[in-house]
Computed example of a mutant assay.
Amino acid sequence: MGQREDLLAGAKKCLVEKGYAHTTARDIVAAAGAHLGSIGYHFGSKEALLNAAVMETFDAWGDAIAAAVVPDAGGTPLDRLRGFVDGLLAAAPEQRAILVASVQAYAQAEFAPEVRAQLVAGYAAGH
């Protein structure tokens, strides 16, 4: 992995462990094994890095949801819904970190237009 990817991985780890509001730039670089100045070089700001990390985890949660959908499973609509919900609930414990960060994406969407735009685009694609 390159330093940019290391920073994203560190930011995602901090999101899960500390939450968006309680994560500092120093926390991220410690988790990433990077230098403090690398955040500005690669992302411009800590907030931009955290927003990128939130969006990556949100995309991963979308992938987990998509995996729970069984295309052409047959049966009644209720059977298909039941299969989807069962698959989603089965994936939730192993995807806890992604789920936590995804919830934080919703909260950030109110204050970060770029996060809001990415969420809207994600919902449009998923629909």
Rank of each mutant, 00 (worst) to 15 (best):
L78E: 12
P77A: 01
F43A: 06
A101H: 11
A11C: 05
A124S: 10
L99A: 15
A34V: 02
R82Q: 06
I65G: 04
N51R: 11
G40A: 09
L78V: 09
L88V: 03
D72R: 07
L78P: 02
G37Y: 08
L7V: 06
V85G: 06
F84T: 02
H35N: 12
H35K: 13
A107P: 04
P77Y: 04
F43H: 03
G37P: 03
A91E: 08
H22V: 12
H127N: 09
P93G: 00
R80Q: 08
E17Q: 05
D6T: 11
P113M: 10
D86V: 01
I28T: 01
A64V: 15
Q104G: 13
G40E: 09
L49A: 10
K12T: 13
V29W: 02
A124E: 13
G44Q: 05
A121L: 07
P93N: 06
G10W: 09
Q104R: 10
G83C: 05
Y41I: 14
G83Q: 09
T23H: 07
G33Y: 01
H22L: 14
P77F: 08
M1A: 09
F58C: 13
A97E: 15
T23K: 00
G44T: 05
T23C: 04
F58V: 13
D63T: 14
A107G: 13
M1L: 13
A9S: 10
T57H: 13
D79G: 02
M55N: 07
L50I: 11
T57Q: 15
A11R: 05
A90G: 06
L78R: 09
L81S: 00
L49G: 02
A9Y: 00
L7E: 03
V69H: 13
Q108L: 13
V115G: 00
Y20D: 03
D27N: 11
F43V: 05
